[in-house]
Amino acid sequence: MEETSAEGRGMGPLPYDISGIALLYIEDESEARSMVSKMLAMNYPKLKLYEAENGAVGLEIYRKYLPEMVMTDINMPVMDGISMSRAIKAINPEANIIAVTAHSDTSYLLNAIEIGIHHYILKPINYQELFSITDKILEQIVLKRLLAEQNRRLVESERQLAGAQRIAHLGSWQLDLPAGSMKWSDELYRIFGIEPASIPPAYQAFLDKFVPDDRKTVEKAIEDAERSRQPVAARFCHILRPDGSLRTLQIEVDVILTGAGVPATIIGTSHDVTDLKQAEEKVHILTEELERRVVQRTSLLQASVKELETFSYFVSHDLRAPVARLEGLCRALLEDCGSCGNDGCKVYAERAERVVRQIKQIIDAFN
């Protein structure tokens, strides 16, 4: 944001929003106080103005409203501007105070500089100078507000990132190549099984967290990223926590280059996938057991089918000849019963013939 003087902006609107900013003006002469207040209100319509007739009243108003700016006369009854400013600085060392003084107030002016008042205006007030100083202070206040808001958002983003990493069991780290120093996220400490910031995040300490067989894998991933200046594919490694538990990490590595294309920082993530790997192993075991059972059931089913085929062959072939002979006997019996005139014999012979026909139908169904 460029500094803009009252003259440079033609007494028009400020190029930034000053809504919510307040100014406290202390002056014991009522006419002068009224005139200056009107000029300030005309030039800064969004600026909240408070007025006081002496330092004691001004200090009371400041304690109540904590305005960002204070403009005060020096030589006043009850409490002078220097005493009031000293009390305000004790409340808020960052308070922006403009001292309004006459040419003869040299001793007061030196005291003002001593307590941290860096802006002053000589009487009679030159409004162009007043507006120029006010513009400068307002711009500083707005810039501080923007910086504070950016810092707040940054802190909130970091808090959300830390929360997301904790939920996902995803730790992050970065290695400054020129300095050889490292930074670990809080979640990386927790993945390693130690409290955040409990040990310095050194490179060798980072490597020592991995089991001996995997340290070379991690080193090679970092070296490959630095040499190729490209991200490195994910690799699986293992760490041994202080409590003796073995954890599986998925390591991903990338590189940040300088403007000249030189590797400057290695960044990486360490994702604790132990639970996922254990779940995959359980699924693998269950799948193998299911396949074993399927093979076993298939074998039993095949045996049953074989037995059924044997039985079907027996029914359809071995029983056909005896049933045919039985059918012939039934016909002969019917003929004999018809010639002898015995109705009871004929009834039983007909029943036997029907049963034989049913057996033949069953045998035919197996073909």
Rank of each mutant, 00 (worst) to 15 (best):
E353V: 07
A32Y: 08
N342P: 04
E139S: 12
S172N: 08
A260E: 13
P124N: 08
E3H: 12
L49G: 00
P242Q: 04
L300S: 09
P124Q: 08
T269C: 03
L143N: 09
T101Q: 07
S83A: 13
I363H: 00
L110G: 11
Y203E: 04
S37F: 04
P322E: 05
V323W: 02
I222F: 10
F314K: 07
R229I: 07
S5V: 07
E114Y: 13
E29A: 11
I285L: 15
A234V: 02
M42G: 11
D243R: 05
A260D: 13
H119R: 13
V323A: 06
I137V: 09
T4C: 12
N126V: 01
A168N: 00
I251T: 02
S19G: 08
D243T: 00
L246N: 11
A352W: 05
I359T: 04
A233P: 05
W173K: 01
S185N: 04
I82W: 03
G180M: 06
I359L: 07
L333H: 08
R247C: 09
I141Y: 05
G259M: 10
V36E: 05
A264S: 15
C330V: 13
C337W: 15
R247Y: 07
K64C: 03
I359V: 06
E327M: 15
S312F: 02
Y62A: 01
T101H: 05
L14I: 01
D336N: 15
Q230K: 12
I266C: 00
V347C: 09
R357M: 12
A112G: 08
I266L: 03
E307Q: 12
L319T: 01
P45H: 04
A324H: 08
N75E: 11
E280C: 06
P242K: 03
R215L: 05
I137K: 05
N342T: 10
I133L: 06
F206P: 02
A102R: 03
P231V: 04
K209F: 14
A264P: 05
E353I: 07
T101K: 06
F236A: 13
R152L: 08
